[in-house]
């Protein structure tokens, strides 16, 4: 249960119709906006704690709403977008959206994304040791323990894993990962990611049915939120 306010921006009444009761049930206070302008007005007058933003709005592009919002606020934003619109999603994520949910989506999926996005507020101080499931990552000492056993990772492998774990539950785009680990000039070298993620998965024996590192096809990677 939470006492957060969520602003749902979607022009389709049917979406509000099923989201509102469920979000309220989860303890959110729900604000509704049908257009981009209404969304921006709402964020100015009574800023919500988190925003669910549909990218296809009648009056303005969802990405424009995001850009406008990011001028003044770092409020977490979860994008609703069609599965086949990777480019649009990536653009929105690079513009500062925190995560996305493919339409059509199940309510549980959206709620999980909202929780993850709310947990990783940028202002939060970082713990020196992150534990998730049977994985323990010591950021200061660059050590990784999987089920108590030492896993030897190369420097870049460790950096990549740490970045993903730090943002567990939310997606990181290829570009965000590449610029953070390899620098700006490598922002298009997605083959690095394929190779390194493959190596990390191998070393962590992350090849079960439920993967720790989830591939978001065409978009990026997400570390499974183990709560």
């Amino acid at each position: 249960m939470t006492d957060k306010t969520v602003l749902v921006v979607d022009d389709e009444p049917a979406i509000h119709r099923f989201l509102t009761p469920v979000l309220e049930l989860e303890g959110y206070q729900v604000q509704r906006a049908d257009t981009g302008q209404q969304a921006l007005d709402a964020m100015r007058d009574a800023p919500a704690d988190i925003v669910v933003l549909d990218l296809g709005l009648p009056d303005m592009d969802g990405k424009a709403v995001l850009t406008e919002l990011r001028r003044t606020r770092a409020t977490p934003v979860v994008i609703l977008s069609a599965r086949d619109r990777e480019a649009e999603k990536i653009e929105a994520l690079d513009l500062g959206a925190n995560d996305f949910v493919n339409k059509p989506f199940s309510v549980g999926e959206l709620l999980a994304r909202l929780r993850a996005a709310l947990r990783h507020r940028p202002s939060e101080p970082e713990a020196p040791v992150i534990t998730t499931g049977d994985l323990e990552i010591d950021l200061a000492r660059h050590r990784v323990l999987k089920a108590g056993r030492d896993v030897r990772l190369a420097r870049k492998e460790f950096d990549l894993l740490a970045l993903l774990v730090r943002n567990a539950g939310t997606v990181l785009t290829h570009r965000q990962l590449l610029t953070a680990i390899w620098g700006d000039q490598h922002e298009a070298d997605t083959q690095y990611l394929r190779v390194y993620v493959g190596q990390i998965r191998q070393k962590l024996r992350d090849d079960g049915e439920v993967r720790l590192i989830v591939t978001e096809p065409g978009v990026g990677y997400r570390f499974r939120d183990l709560g």
Partner: peptide, 18 residues
């Protein structure tokens, strides 16, 4: 097709989970 599908999926998962 996506919008009605999103509503159907959303509403039915809401009913199942909540």
């Amino acid at each position: 097709f996506r919008t009605p599908l999103a509503s159907i999926l959303g509403a039915s998962t809401s009913l199942i989970d909540f």
